[in-house]
Design a protein around this nucleic acid. Structure first.
Lengths: 196, 196
DNA sequence: TTCTTTTCTTATCAATTGATAAGTGAACCC
DNA sequence: GGGTTCACTTATCAATTGATAAGAAAAGAA
């Protein structure tokens, strides 16, 4: 079953705001497709990057590496979603986290200069960019509450609601890291929740 | 001892980027001072707000109220700092959190329209705005790691490093909420850490 | 002042989570 | 096929954290 990537770009844009056919065409012409195999890195923390990304197919996660070279997952992206925008994940275009494909992935990527130029000309794309940022902050707010006042079990239930079926598709170590618990605790909670 | 508020506005601006005397004057003329007594609300979640704020004197915190009307503190602001910028804390100028004075506070507030206009004309203020956002995201990243992979004791130590002496100035319930632990656990950790 | 209220501490016990190690099963390599 | 590695589970025990209640100290009110 072949995936229609242009339809997915349209889906993502329209998920945030109204987009005319002309705008859609302009966006599609401004970027290119990029595919990554499971495990490959899309961009690296502390490295230069100057693209916006739409995740068209597959699952990816963002992570940071701490002093003891332990990987910490701080976000998970599923298909038909935008990756956190460039301005919010870089400083002077230097990434503050890494992005890795957890399954085979296809992205649509647009050079940041081209996208900024489009936004200047196009009201719809300005609105799109603004809505993306708004959702990003709402999510941020949810997570602030989630990690401060919910138990690990609650966080797993939250995860299952927001990322259904993902538990069977990506490594449990990644999910456990994302939820802020050890893989052993994660397995224990899974066991406990299936008993009910 | 009287506080020179203009000096503090200058301090805050220059803490982020170079600011000329002319720019400083323009900023000062664009806003007004606003004072709040301890316990008073500066702005409320789900209410309209259209200002940028500099905290010149005092301590404030941002919080949200959950389903069980429990207050959850998600950020603490100390004097000579900017409050999270308008675009990052509102959706269509509706606040996504509340801000409350924890001690008597004095803010410098600028209507968002006036500040946006200044930024359009003034390269220094554009840079200022950008740096504020950058620091905001860096802090966000720190907290993502802090709550996912550090213990409550580590978070308290982090808090003491970043907010020295604050433990004696604001309610412990606020700090405990901010750290994601109960006030009882907070007291226990304080006790444990003084023994060393 | 005295009384009341609020804030913080301490104690006890239960529940959650982590650390470590061993076991199971699947995937992969030769 | 056998053997190895990797991912997940399960078990045991220790450490952390929460819930509840009671006590001590500080702040406010009359």
């Amino acid at each position: 079953m072949a995936v229609n990537y242009n339809e997915r770009i349209e889906y993502i844009l329209k998920d945030y705001t109204a987009i005319s056919p002309a705008t859609l065409t302009t966006v599609i012409q401004s970027g290119t497709l990029a595919s990554y195999k499971r495990g490959e890195t899309v961009f690296l923390q502390k490295k230069y990057n100057a693209f916006e990304y739409f995740l068209l197919e597959g699952i990816a996660h963002r992570y940071n590496v701490d002093e003891e070279s332990q990987m910490l997952t701080t976000g998970i992206y599923i298909e038909k979603n935008v990756i956190t925008p460039h301005f919010a994940r870089t400083i002077n275009s230097i990434s503050i986290f890494s992005l890795q494909a957890l399954t085979d992935c296809t992205f649509f990527k647009i050079p940041i200069g081209a996208f900024d130029a489009l936004r200047l000309q196009n009201e719809q794309l300005r609105a799109f960019g603004q809505r993306v940022v708004e959702r990003e902050f709402i999510q941020h707010l949810n997570y602030e509450a989630l990690f401060r006042s919910y138990t690990a079990k609650d966080r797993l239930l939250f995860f299952r609601q927001h990322y259904p079926a993902l538990e069977n598709l990506i490594p449990h170590t990644v999910i456990a890291s994302f939820l802020g618990i050890t893989p052993v605790s994660f397995s224990r909670l899974r066991n406990e929740l299936t008993k009910n």
